[in-house]
Amino acid sequence: MFTGSVPSLESFSNLTYLSLSGNNFDRWKPPDWFGKLNKITLLRLVDVNLYGEISSSFFNQNQVRTLDLSRNQLKGQLPSLLTNLQNLESFVLSDWFGKLNKITLLRLVDVNLYGEIPSSFFNQTQVRTLDLSRNQLKGQLPSSLTNLQNLESFVLFDNTISGTVEVDLSLY
């Protein structure tokens, strides 16, 4: 339950796990020194008053496998930046995930997604868990859902989606 400003962690270049979640920091922008922490495999910054655009140096985390930036006020263009994260397996934020083909968990809960479910969600063929709960999604369930052959869990509650899903129970 730290308060105040986020301290610089630039001198901790060997960090592999960083979670600042659950603290009450003053409103802060993603600092450039994050780019120097290039050994991090897990980065969780959930609900820490992070706001604004994320600089490209933030995404020099080429070892990161789990990235959770949910419940912040981030903006800007993420898709091109995220393609630097070649080892990313779990990403929690919004619908900007570009060409990340290793993602197995995509949890976009309560991030104000609206409209129809983008078909690009169903190009992530490694996804095992897709959670789009508590958004403002509407329309028909896309037939491209069947592209997710590794899908084990698909959660859509608190949206306005209609349609049916055909499941081959002989696979279970």
Rank of each mutant, 00 (worst) to 15 (best):
137 L>Q: 04
89 E>G: 10
142 P>K: 09
15 L>H: 11
37 L>C: 10
41 T>Q: 15
7 P>F: 06
19 S>C: 05
19 S>P: 02
153 S>G: 02
99 K>V: 03
66 T>G: 14
116 E>C: 11
22 G>F: 03
97 F>G: 01
103 I>L: 14
98 G>T: 06
66 T>L: 14
123 N>V: 05
114 Y>M: 14
109 V>M: 10
118 P>W: 08
25 F>Y: 08
33 W>D: 02
55 S>H: 06
80 S>I: 11
114 Y>V: 04
124 Q>M: 13
87 N>L: 14
59 F>H: 10
62 N>S: 15
81 L>F: 14
58 F>S: 13
21 S>W: 05
10 E>H: 09
124 Q>C: 07
151 L>H: 00
60 N>H: 08
95 D>E: 07
71 R>I: 06
159 N>S: 03
32 D>S: 12
120 S>M: 01
131 D>R: 05
69 L>Q: 00
20 L>C: 07
41 T>C: 12
15 L>A: 13
152 E>C: 03
32 D>T: 12
29 K>Q: 15
24 N>P: 00
72 N>M: 14
132 L>Q: 00
1 M>V: 07
137 L>K: 06
4 G>M: 04
95 D>R: 09
113 L>Q: 05
161 I>C: 04
74 L>P: 10
132 L>H: 04
139 G>D: 12
116 E>M: 11
150 N>E: 04
88 L>G: 03
96 W>R: 08
38 N>T: 09
91 F>E: 09
43 L>G: 10
76 G>V: 10
131 D>F: 02
17 Y>E: 11
88 L>V: 02
168 D>C: 02
123 N>D: 13
25 F>R: 01
162 S>F: 09
20 L>H: 00
23 N>A: 08
140 Q>H: 11
49 N>D: 06
52 G>Y: 05
35 G>I: 10
142 P>F: 01
91 F>V: 15
8 S>I: 05
165 V>M: 04
104 T>P: 00
52 G>H: 09
146 T>Y: 07
16 T>F: 13
35 G>H: 07
150 N>V: 00
15 L>N: 11
148 L>E: 00
93 L>Y: 05
84 N>R: 15
128 R>A: 12
149 Q>I: 06
141 L>M: 15
75 K>A: 14
70 S>I: 04
161 I>T: 04
152 E>Q: 09
151 L>F: 00
152 E>D: 00
171 L>G: 01
111 V>F: 12
94 S>C: 08
72 N>F: 14
142 P>A: 02
39 K>C: 07
51 Y>C: 09
149 Q>A: 09
120 S>H: 08
146 T>D: 09
57 S>Y: 05
140 Q>T: 10
17 Y>T: 10
45 L>A: 05
12 F>Q: 15
18 L>W: 08
84 N>H: 08
141 L>S: 03
162 S>C: 08
31 P>F: 00
43 L>Y: 05
130 L>Y: 06
72 N>G: 14
36 K>C: 05
30 P>I: 03
165 V>E: 01
66 T>W: 14
93 L>Q: 02
115 G>K: 07
136 Q>R: 15
80 S>R: 12
35 G>M: 07
94 S>G: 13
